[in-house]
């Protein structure tokens, strides 16, 4: 198939970017989206141009590196699919595809389609862990955990940290990302002990990193490649307010 690509090109963080248009012939519907970009890059290099930079690594939907804003949607048109899992058979012959980086002031553009997502690491550093040291654990089966609860914790834990939720949100909110970790930990007995402290610290850091507020439009859930539910946001809100109430009662 033949395609027209409108791609955001930006040399570095300091310089302004702009869209460039490329026409690409003989794209196979069997190619993945990133293979299609590889194919474009081969041609750009052959012409002596600089290839389009984009983040990627595992190319199987699990590392969370890739993340392109395709035709106005994070990771493109298919639900529950990362950019690297998207295939060209989803596009029509002759179509124009607009490809941009994530747009959020908390994720500044580094080059072309590559953004800086260290803000997510900072949020995890603020509290996304259980305070336990190596070597102190009891036998793993000492504390039984209800299967339904543990499966639910798993559903929250599958977040790949790609940032699509932020890119999907008109407020650039990171609520779904933070809620997934807060909920996973709060549901499990190992994480419950520190649940109140954790949620406060993580939410505080989320604000520090400049992410916006949540206005319940649920774009994040719709575009999350792992299908993480906004119910976790509700759960986080409960955790957050009960943490506040607890604190007030103490003081």
């Amino acid at each position: 198939m033949n395609l027209k690509l409108k791609i955001w090109r930006q040399k570095n963080a300091a310089q302004k970017g702009k869209f460039e248009t490329y026409s690409l012939q003989e794209v196979s519907p069997e190619m993945s989206f990133l293979q299609m970009l590889d194919y474009l890059n081969d041609q750009l290099i052959a012409k002596g141009d600089e290839p389009v930079h984009f983040d990627h690594d595992c190319r199987e939907g699990i590392c969370g590196s890739c993340g392109l804003y395709i035709n106005g949607r994070p990771h493109g048109p298919l639900r529950n699919t990362t950019t690297c899992e998207l295939h060209m058979r989803e596009f029509k012959e002759g179509s124009t595809i607009v490809i941009e980086p994530w747009r959020s002031k908390s994720f500044p553009v580094i080059k072309d389609l590559v953004v800086d997502r260290t803000a997510f690491d900072k949020i995890i550093q603020a509290g996304g862990f259980v305070n336990t040291n190596t070597g102190v654990a009891q036998d793993a089966n000492t504390t039984p955990i209800n299967k339904i609860v543990s499966d639910r914790a798993f559903d929250a834990a599958v977040c790949v940290g790609c940032g699509a939720c932020v890119a999907a949100c008109k407020n650039s909110s990171a609520m779904l990302f933070v809620a997934a970790k807060v909920s996973q930990m709060a549901m499990l007995p190992q994480g419950k002990v520190e649940a109140a402290d954790r949620v406060e610290k993580m939410v505080h850091e989320m604000d520090e990193q400049g992410f916006g507020f949540c206005s319940n439009t649920y774009g994040c859930e719709f575009d999350c490649p792992k299908g993480i539910s906004v119910e976790f946001i509700a759960q986080m809100n409960r955790e957050f307010f009960s943490a506040r109430v607890c604190k007030q009662n103490h003081s």
Binding site: V130, T132, Q138, D151, A153, F154, Q190, G191
Partner: peptide
């Protein structure tokens, strides 16, 4: 202990 949700 770290909260890894293994299957149960």
């Amino acid at each position: 202990a770290m909260g890894v949700p293994f299957a149960r």
